[in-house]
């Protein structure tokens, strides 16, 4: 490819990336050191915003909650995604309809899905799950005001929303596993479980890494589903980092954009730290593939 062709094709992407990623990132870092109000230039405050964020117990609680939900959700996504993908990989005729139904939760706007999901646990709107618990003799569960039940609710909703993505990617990975390899395992006497643990999973390791990477990034940024699922998130300690940013920087007409930016910078550092092993793995694989 000639240099001119390369730049012709690459320039639009560069412009979009620069406009939508680089400039906002630079501005976020700049604002994190400033006191900023809408419509007026910021004034330099040094590390004050970072000090405010790091000494606010609410920020610590938001980080802990976000990490806990991320860890639990990613593990569940990988396990359930793998199991369902394996099952769907075996069906042929009804696969499109099964996939179509499964994708419903993924294509729904997150907030809409979360509102509908919350109704399953809300007596004001039927509360089907509550009725089932009652039917089996269980006690009333305070899904929206008790920290642990509410955390479970958030995790289940996040899994419900993201499972189709994980399953689809893993299914694509499974379809790429050579039949010869599986057959060789069977000839060597591998049982089903052994075949999965020692043949299939190692073969799709890269795909599983990709699902983990994307899932971690997505769950760490969770925000809109909490509006419906955790109406008093802050007071029960179930606030995500992004919801915390929104609360301190924008909600109720607040204008603490500097503080919000500082929290975002800290979040970026946190995300990068968590993703280092996966990024290194991807680089290694890319290097090996050359």
């Amino acid at each position: 490819m000639k240099a001119r062709e390369f730049w012709l094709l690459f320039a639009p992407s560069l412009l979009v990336m620069g406009g939508l990623l680089v400039i906002p990132l630079v501005r976020t870092v700049q604002w994190s050191f400033e006191s900023v109000h809408y419509g007026s230039p910021g004034s330099f405050v040094g590390l004050e915003n970072f000090a405010t964020a790091l000494t606010d117990p609410r920020f610590g609680r938001a980080v802990l909650f976000t990490l806990a939900v991320t860890a639990a959700t990613v593990v569940i996504l990988l396990v359930l995604g793998y199991l369902i993908a394996t099952a769907i990989n075996r069906i042929t005729r009804s696969r499109p309809i099964v996939l179509g139904i499964m994708l419903v939760s993924y294509v729904l706007p997150n907030l809409v899905g979360a509102v509908a999901f919350s109704w399953l646990f809300d007596d004001n709107f039927g509360g089907v799950i509550n009725r089932m618990i009652e039917f089996f003799g269980g006690n009333q569960v305070l899904w929206f005001t008790d920290q642990v039940p509410n955390g479970i609710l958030v995790i289940v909703n996040t899994v419900w929303h993201m499972l189709p993505f994980a399953m689809l990617i893993i299914l694509a990975g499974l379809q790429g596993v050579p039949t010869e390899l599986r057959e060789a395992g069977i000839i060597d006497g591998a049982r089903a479980v052994q075949s999965h643990l020692h043949i299939i999973i190692p073969t799709i390791r890269g795909v599983l890494g990709f699902v983990t990477l994307i899932s971690i990034m997505d769950v760490l940024r969770m925000f809109d589903n909490l509006i419906a699922l955790s109406p008093q998130a802050a007071s029960i300690g179930n606030e995500s980092i992004m919801l915390y940013v929104y609360s301190v920087a924008f909600a109720d007409g607040a204008q603490r954009l500097g503080l919000g930016s500082a929290i975002n910078v800290l979040t970026i550092i946190l995300i990068l730290t968590l993703l280092i092993p996966f990024i290194r793995g991807i680089f290694k694989e890319a290097k090996a593939a050359r």
């Binding site: 005729r93 309809i97 996939l99 179509g100 294509v107």
Partner: peptide
């Protein structure tokens, strides 16, 4: 049949997307 299934699934998903976007 497979194509019909695929079409049905696509219509169902597409309908939901349009419903969501139209809100």
């Amino acid at each position: 049949k497979n194509r019909a299934f695929a079409l049905t699934a696509a219509i169902a998903v597409g309908g939901l997307i349009l419903t969501g976007c139209g809100a």
